[in-house]
């Protein structure tokens, strides 16, 4: 448990979020091939981490709260990983014919 952040920190996080928004907007205009999606999602994850840690006070939360957050992400991971393991290992077009 840490002490609550001072007001200044909230403004810095807000400015960082808007900076990351500008970055993702600019990066989308570059042709990076497959890496465009990787860059865009990495920036989204970075924004999410800032919001979780500071705006949602995860930084000052007890460990049990972190377990709840991890559980939510774990089940999302299961949903995506198991479904894609199916879709990406067979030919969708051939099946739907």
């Amino acid at each position: 448990m840490k002490t609550p952040a001072p007001t200044r920190v909230y403004w810095i996080i807000w400015a960082s979020l808007l900076g990351l928004l500008g970055l993702t907007f600019g990066a989308a205009r570059l042709n990076l091939g497959q890496f465009n999606s990787v860059v865009a999602l990495t920036i989204s994850v970075a924004k999410t981490v800032l919001i979780l840690l500071f705006f949602m006070h995860l930084r000052e939360s007890k460990r049990i709260t972190w377990v709840y957050v991890a559980a939510g992400l774990f089940w999302l991971g299961l949903l995506v990983a198991l479904t894609l393991s199916d879709y990406w290992t067979r030919n969708l077009a051939a099946v739907s014919k």
Partner: peptide, 19 residues
């Protein structure tokens, strides 16, 4: 949380056709 959902929606909807 609702803000975070939009953070992911934004690039997937608006930015994928720019390059």
């Amino acid at each position: 949380f609702v803000d975070i959902v939009w953070v992911f929606l934004y690039p997937l909807i608006y930015l994928i056709g720019l390059r």
